[in-house]
Design a protein around this nucleic acid. Sequence first.
DNA 1: CTGTTACACATTACATACAATCTTCTGCTA
DNA 2: TAGCAGAAGATTGTATGTAATGTGTAACAG
Lengths: 218, 218
Amino acid sequence: MSVDEQPLISRQRLADQVYDVLRGRILDRSLVPGDRLSVPLLASELDLSRSPVREAVQRLVVEGLAEEQLHRGARVAGVDAADLADVFAVRQTLEGLAASLAVAGDTAGLVTVLRASIADHTAAIAADDEKAILAADQAFHQALLTAAHNPHLDRALGPLLGRAQIAMLSGDLSRWPRKALAEHKAILAAIRAGDAGAAETAARDHVAAVLARHLSRG
Amino acid sequence: MSVDEQPLISRQRLADQVYDVLRGRILDRSLVPGDRLSVPLLASELDLSRSPVREAVQRLVVEGLAEEQLHRGARVAGVDAADLADVFAVRQTLEGLAASLAVAGDTAGLVTVLRASIADHTAAIAADDEKAILAADQAFHQALLTAAHNPHLDRALGPLLGRAQIAMLSGDLSRWPRKALAEHKAILAAIRAGDAGAAETAARDHVAAVLARHLSRG
DNA sequence: CTGTTACACATTACATACAATCTTCTGCTA
DNA sequence: TAGCAGAAGATTGTATGTAATGTGTAACAG
C-alpha cells in the first residue's frame, strides 16, 4: 500500500498545472471578465507549447469560467446581474444539500475545521484584512462541501462557486463581514446539534443573505 | 439580423461533433462503463486526427462521463451503488429547483410540451416500446429543465442526468413505467396549478421514486 | 472628410511529429 | 513449472507545423 495516495486524476500534467494557474488568476482578479485567454500568448509567457494551454482553456470553457466563440478564442466569463441570480439559486440549493449531508458524516472532525475557519474569520475581521476574510469564508464553505462526501455534489458546485466569486469580486470584497460570520456560526450550531434540516436552512439563508448584501448597493 | 442564430459555442468544430458522437454512444450503451476511449483508435475509426478526438474525450472526463488515469487513458465512467445514491441526491435537489423555477416562466408553453411528452409516454407504454418510453421520459425532464431558464442549472444538471442514465441503463430500462408516468402527471398538475412548492415536491418525489424502483431489485 | 474595400496579420482548429510512460509478451532463472 | 527481468509495442502527453477563419489597418473612392 502506497503512502501518498494520488487522486484519480493526477495533477502532474502540464495542462492541469496551467489550468490551476489560470483558474487562480481568474479568482484573484489577475484576469478579469472580458480578458482574452490567448493560447499563443499564454504559451510563450509560461514557456511551453500551445497544446497544454489550449487544453486548460478548453476546460475553463467547459466549466463555465470562460466563454468562447468559434475561431475567436476564449475570454474570462462575465457574470451579470441576471446570471448572478441564476448562479445563486443553484448555489443556494446545493449548499443547503451540502450542509444537510455534512451532518450525516463525521461531525466531530467537521466541527473542528469549521471552528478554525470561524476563528480565522474573526481574527481577519479584527485585523481588517480583506484577503484573509475571503480566505476564511471560502475555507468554511469548502469544509462544508468536503464533509458532504459527495463527489458529484462537489463537481456540480465547484464551478458555481468560481462563477459566484468572479461576480462577488466585482463589488466590494467583504460587505458586512460580521454578518457572514454570524451566519456561519448559525450553520455550525445546527451541525453541532446534529439537525440536518436546520443546517440546510441555515446554509440556504446564508447564501441568500450573501447575495442580498451584494445586491444591496451595486 | 441573421435567420439562423447560432448558439454561443458553435457546434461546427470537429471536436464538438466527436463529443456528440461519443456521448451518444455512451448514453445508448454502444459504449458501456469500463470501455476504453482510445484516442488513436477512435481517430482512425472516425477518419480524422487525434487532436479533436482528444479534446472530446477530455471534455467527457471534465463532465464526469469518463474517468482517466495519468498515462493510461480514459474509460467510460462506471456508476456503482454508492455513486448512484450520490448522483440522485444532487439530482433530486436540482430537479426540484427546476420544477419550482419552471412555474415562474411561461407555464402555458411548458404545459403543452409536457402534455405531449405524457401522451408519447402513454402510447409507448401501450406499445411496450422501451426505447420510446425512455425517450418520452427524457423529453419530460428536459422540458422541465429548459423551462427553468437557468443556464447554470442546466450546466450543473446535464452531466448528472448523463451519469444517472448510465446507471439506469445497467438495469432494466423501464421498471413500472406506469408509475413514472403517474408521477409525471402529478408534476404537471402542480405546474398547471401554478404551485411552485408543490411542483418542487412532486419533482423531488419522482426522482426519489425512480431511484427506489431502480434499487428495488438490483 | 467619411465610408468602403482589400490586404496583411494574428489566432484558431486541425494535423502530424516526437518523447515519456505504461502494458504486455518473451525468455531466462530457480 | 512458476516467477521475474527486460525488451518491444502501444498509448499518452507535449511540441510543432499547416490551413482556414477572423481582425484590424490603410489606401482609395465618393
